[in-house]
Design a protein around this nucleic acid. Structure first.
Lengths: 249, 249
DNA sequence: CAGTGGTCTAGACCACGTC
DNA sequence: ACGTGGTCTAGACCACTGG
């Protein structure tokens, strides 16, 4: 037989996983950029010395994970967090009648802090190392609905300024990607119900003791590296958190 | 060319979607039963007159949707809601330290009611048609944590008795499948934060005004048919709702 | 029109589970 | 040893996009 055997290959891993890794690496090393196209499937076959089916399986998985976007007749592109499809992949709060809307984001606070133990654990950094702290107020239909407290490991976001956040044209995750080369690929969220404290009540325009939905999100980049910890407090009087806002195939 | 063309086929649909549909139908018609094996991939090729790749794509999707379970070296099986992997596909409440636990379920109420407009809409039935109403209390580590109010269209669950619910050995969804031939394949959930009213406080052993996580779930069967509406009230003092409890590939 | 991804074929060898 | 699913090959035709 002229081809390689079905599974055995230099690194000992599955062939299509190997191809996935190589594609991700090429993007990491800047060969193909977010928003740009990657080579056609035929060219990828030649480049990696595998058959179409194997390239397809690799690209299929990467596209399923949201890393690539395929467009029939046009090509396959490296995804960007500025794309519309991405906003609602991470923003799950919609009106109770099902209406979706883009939130208006307002910066409330920006500064540095020392990581508390729970933050350090979640972000996989040393206790008491420095973190950036951002507080945003999000409004829907003109009314404040959500308070975001965002914590970032400082070393990944060196040089972040308040100005960047105020002038940000698109989403925060787009900023991470464009300015700091940090691509969020997977959020993990935990939810609780809590009562509004005085600060939250004031900022959200509700009474103290109003029930709030607390969303604790850890956002992961490649290799399961945590890059952001976020606590969101949502007034669910008119809005709700919706699992799986994605449309079906 | 001897084979059929790549896309054109009798029904005009994609070939692998056609195969998916036929597999689902065979299960529906009782040819292959939940828990049992379906024919090997080779046999499915012959039966449906398509190639391995096409059968694989169909089975891959059905297995991704949780309808089938593949086991290397053994075969492919029709999934059952009694399987362990299924409990946590629908039960997302875990302890705040990440520990997962099986809830103890206790029936609080069982009866019939007329569908309110919002229920009728969600369940896609006529307003004021009859629904079954079940209220369960769920405990974790011996303490009540969650209250479930479950609403079912009566016509799909004719003959359901309180006895069935009390003697239920496994999950409710397993009961739906075994006794009524209703297979839940996809839940859709919306979450809010609310305050405990008097009844909830009493049943859950908390004070009135305790913040509760409200989970409004619509469960769908095949063809996007809604089969259950469920409102769950969770005390999130020690527990939390966790998105994506599934382990990665 | 040429080039892309989407689907499909008809095989092959491998790793795993069961007998 | 045998049958299963898991992976892989080396092509093919189709539908869609763009020039």
């Amino acid at each position: 037989m002229v081809g390689r055997s079905a599974v055995a290959n230099p690194s000992g891993a599955l062939l299509y996983k190997e191809v996935k890794r190589k594609i991700i690496d090429a993007v990491h090393q800047g060969e193909w950029k977010p928003g740009g196209a990657i080579p056609s499937e035929t060219k990828l076959c030649e480049r990696y010395g595998v058959s179409m089916g194997t390239v397809r399986k690799a690209v299929d998985e990467l596209s399923g994970e949201g890393f690539l976007i395929r467009q029939q007749g046009r090509g396959t592109f490296v995804s960007t967090h500025s794309q519309d499809r991405y906003l609602f992949a991470f923003f799950h709060v919609i009106r109770q009648d099902g209406h979706k809307e883009y939130p208006l984001v307002e910066l409330v606070e920006f500064g540095k802090a020392k990581a508390e133990p729970c933050m350090a654990t979640a972000l996989d950094i040393k206790p008491k190392s420095r973190v950036l702290r951002i507080v945003n107020k999000l409004s829907l239909s003109g009314a404040p609905v959500m308070l975001d407290e965002i914590l970032l490991p400082e070393n990944l976001f060196l040089g972040m300024t308040e100005k960047m956040l105020r002038e940000r044209p698109s989403t925060l995750y787009h900023l991470y990607q464009e300015q700091f080369g940090v691509t969020v690929i997977r959020p993990h969220e935990k939810l609780r119900a809590v009562l509004a404290d005085e600060v939250q009540a004031r900022l959200l325009g509700v009474s103290i003791g109003e029930p709030l939905l607390l969303i604790i999100r850890t956002a992961y980049s490649f290799r399961d590296q945590p890059v952001e910890l976020r606590r969101s407090y949502v007034v669910t009087r008119n809005y709700e958190y919706c699992t799986d806002p994605m449309v079906a195939t």
